[in-house]
């Protein structure tokens, strides 16, 4: 991954959350407060306008800056969670204009750790983690098998989407949906859904 690809990932993510904003908001209205699509659209729009000036020189800086912007602009839980994930991802990368799939794997691990540390969610709690953790596992397996970035990110995106779909059957234990208890069953988690969009965006740009 180089700086251009990292920027392309963020632009593709902005496009995806904007295109899917209504769906994210509908999912959130069912078990939360119905602003997930609006908030992510606002946040990634700010990330993109931050890139429009002088783009940062390293992949790490691109992602740290994007994370800081999300923390500063979004609010709610999604701002700190996605913002901290991107910041941790960026901070775990070596400074340089390109990073290898192995280095990206280390960064993605750090991102998931940040989400779990801040939100306290475990797999099965019906959160971002339920898409992120399987995506990371699939990415790691692909990298271990010698796959390139395109194949590994495609595997991660598929796993994230399956993980997001699997949240439908779960009972929420974190965030606002947790107040519903068993009434949250039958609804796909909006955070896991947006996480799948972010991994799909990565796979899309990595495919070229």
């Amino acid at each position: 991954m180089d700086v251009a690809l990292a920027c392309a990932w963020l632009r593709a993510t902005a496009g995806a959350v904007t295109a899917e904003a209504d769906r994210l908001t509908r999912l959130d209205a069912a078990i939360g407060d119905g602003d997930h699509g609006v908030n992510l659209t606002r946040g990634f729009a700010a990330v993109i306008s931050g890139l429009d000036g002088t783009p940062p020189a390293t992949v790490a800086e691109v992602l740290v800056k994007a994370g800081s912007t999300l923390i500063s602009k979004v609010g709610g839980a999604s701002g700190p969670l996605y913002g901290s994930a991107l910041r941790a991802l960026g901070k775990a990368l070596p400074s340089g204009t390109t990073v290898t799939p192995e280095e990206l794997l280390t960064g993605l691990h750090a991102g998931l750790d940040a989400v779990r540390a801040l939100g306290g969610a475990a797999p099965g709690d019906k959160t971002i983690v339920d898409a992120y953790a399987p995506a990371l596992e699939a990415f790691a397996a692909a990298v271990a098998a010698g796959s390139g970035l395109a194949q590994a990110t495609a595997a991660a995106a598929r796993a994230a989407e399956e993980g997001a779909a699997a949240t439908t059957a779960m009972t929420a234990r974190k965030g606002r949906a947790s107040y519903l208890g068993e009434r949250s069953v039958g609804h796909q988690d909006p955070g896991a859904t947006s996480t799948a969009l972010i991994f799909r965006a990565l796979a899309g740009v990595a495919e070229g």
């Binding site: 602003d35 908030n39 500063s72 602009k73 609010g75 709610g76 839980a77």
Partner: peptide, 11 residues
């Protein structure tokens, strides 16, 4: 004050 029903940001 944050956005409607959305917490304020750290800044």
């Amino acid at each position: 004050p944050g956005e409607i029903f959305t917490s304020p940001v750290p800044d």
